[in-house]
Amino acid sequence: MKKIYIPLFLMLLLLISACGNSEEASSSTNNQDQEPETITYDSENGPIEVPTNPQRVVVLSSFAGNVMALDVPLVGVDSWSKMNPRYEELKDVEEVTDENIEKILELNPDLIIGLSTIKNVEKLQEIAPTVTYTYGKLDYLEQHIEIGKLLNKEEEAKAWVEDFKQRAQVLGEDIKQKIGEDATVSVIENDDKNLYVFGDNWGRGTEILYQEMGLKMPEKVKEMALEPGYYTLSSEALPEFAGDYMIFSKVSDGYTSFQETETYQNIPAVQKGQVFEVDAKWFYFNDPLTLEDQLTYFVDVFLSK
């Protein structure tokens, strides 16, 4: 049998070629595994390129809690979020508005989020990708999933939503067993001079009480506040809107003198000690952080007493 001899230079050539192919394959694999720097997000106003993993987000209205719940860093937030005692994480985050263009520029954000009513959108777009949402276009849980999509964390958002709905509905059944299937609950709030009563989608725990737990609202509340979201009323009219139980989202330095009136004192819920007061500053919102606190609060006041 003849031995086949391969010239040395040919062996070297084959070896170099094999190494090159190996490096090229390795490089190709690494490139495929590497996450792109941006993704295309389908916003209300059309497709927009946003960071795959944003690290310097500015929220100009409403959604700071959603961003924090998904563990995405914030560098600027609106005043309402900043004053929320629940948002301790925002202590060192800058307070900004849609008119603080220079201040926002200095923060060097990689993503800006706000409601569709914010001003200076075109100027903000020159600083960073800017995404806005119309309040109420999505329900409160769909909104969180949508922000999850924006932040490239859709699966995390969906998992929380599914778990939260299940827990809230089970606890709602427990509460109805305790207070009665037909018991009504109303949610009121004060400001400097007015009182408000809320429907089922205006924060203040209304989404949990009415949508998830299925508790009933008084007929007058349903008539006047359900469609618009809230209704302004006088203290004299409050007895018409008062449920068997009342949640009072209270602005401590606002209009509270109505609580001393005979009209208020004669409301059955007041006489039975079934009015539950809570700090309005952290009860406004309907993001996951606030919702978890609201759920715990409702369990405490309805089931632990």
Score class of each variant (00 low, 15 high):
residue 1 M to W: 09
residue 2 K to N: 14
residue 3 K to N: 11
residue 7 P to H: 12
residue 8 L to P: 05
residue 10 L to T: 05
residue 12 L to E: 10
residue 14 L to V: 13
residue 17 S to F: 14
residue 18 A to C: 07
residue 22 S to R: 11
residue 24 E to Y: 13
residue 30 N to V: 06
residue 31 N to T: 11
residue 32 Q to S: 14
residue 32 Q to G: 09
residue 32 Q to I: 12
residue 33 D to K: 15
residue 34 Q to M: 12
residue 38 T to K: 14
residue 43 S to I: 09
residue 47 P to W: 11
residue 48 I to F: 09
residue 48 I to H: 04
residue 50 V to Q: 13
residue 52 T to K: 07
residue 55 Q to R: 13
residue 56 R to V: 00
residue 61 S to V: 08
residue 66 N to E: 12
residue 68 M to D: 06
residue 70 L to F: 03
residue 72 V to L: 02
residue 75 V to E: 02
residue 78 D to E: 14
residue 79 S to L: 05
residue 79 S to N: 09
residue 81 S to A: 10
residue 86 R to M: 15
residue 89 E to L: 06
residue 90 L to W: 04
residue 90 L to H: 04
residue 97 T to P: 08
residue 102 E to K: 10
residue 102 E to W: 11
residue 109 P to H: 01
residue 111 L to D: 03
residue 112 I to K: 04
residue 113 I to K: 03
residue 117 T to C: 08
residue 117 T to K: 15
residue 119 K to G: 05
residue 121 V to K: 14
residue 122 E to A: 09
residue 128 A to R: 04
residue 130 T to E: 03
residue 131 V to N: 01
residue 133 Y to K: 06
residue 134 T to W: 02
residue 134 T to C: 02
residue 135 Y to I: 03
residue 137 K to W: 02
residue 146 E to A: 10
residue 147 I to S: 03
residue 149 K to G: 01
residue 152 N to P: 01
residue 158 K to F: 04
residue 158 K to S: 09
residue 159 A to H: 15
residue 160 W to Y: 15
residue 161 V to N: 02
residue 161 V to E: 01
residue 162 E to Y: 06
residue 162 E to T: 13
residue 163 D to T: 15
residue 163 D to W: 14
residue 165 K to G: 03
residue 166 Q to G: 05
residue 167 R to H: 08
residue 168 A to F: 10
residue 168 A to E: 02
residue 169 Q to P: 08
residue 169 Q to Y: 07
residue 170 V to M: 09
residue 173 E to L: 05
residue 176 K to Q: 13
residue 176 K to S: 07
residue 176 K to D: 05
residue 176 K to C: 04
residue 178 K to V: 03
residue 180 G to N: 07
residue 181 E to C: 10
residue 184 T to A: 03
residue 185 V to G: 02
residue 186 S to F: 08
residue 186 S to H: 09
residue 189 E to M: 15
residue 197 V to P: 02
residue 201 N to V: 10
residue 204 R to P: 00
residue 205 G to Q: 04
residue 205 G to C: 07
residue 206 T to A: 04
residue 207 E to I: 14
residue 208 I to L: 09
residue 209 L to S: 02
residue 211 Q to K: 08
residue 216 K to M: 14
residue 216 K to T: 13
residue 220 K to V: 15
residue 221 V to Y: 00
residue 223 E to K: 05
residue 224 M to L: 15
residue 226 L to S: 07
residue 228 P to E: 06
residue 230 Y to K: 07
residue 230 Y to F: 12
residue 232 T to V: 15
residue 232 T to G: 08
residue 232 T to I: 15
residue 232 T to N: 07
residue 233 L to N: 01
residue 234 S to E: 11
residue 236 E to P: 01
residue 237 A to T: 12
residue 238 L to G: 02
residue 244 D to L: 00
residue 247 I to K: 00
residue 250 K to F: 06
residue 252 S to C: 12
residue 254 G to E: 01
residue 257 S to A: 13
residue 257 S to Y: 00
residue 258 F to T: 07
residue 262 E to M: 09
residue 262 E to D: 11
residue 263 T to E: 07
residue 265 Q to Y: 07
residue 265 Q to H: 02
residue 271 Q to C: 12
residue 271 Q to T: 12
residue 271 Q to G: 06
residue 274 Q to I: 12
residue 275 V to E: 01
residue 275 V to N: 03
residue 276 F to Y: 13
residue 283 F to I: 06
residue 285 F to W: 11
residue 285 F to D: 01
residue 288 P to N: 05
residue 288 P to S: 09
residue 289 L to V: 15
residue 290 T to P: 02
residue 294 Q to V: 08
residue 295 L to A: 10
residue 300 D to F: 10
residue 301 V to P: 00
residue 302 F to Q: 07
residue 305 K to H: 07
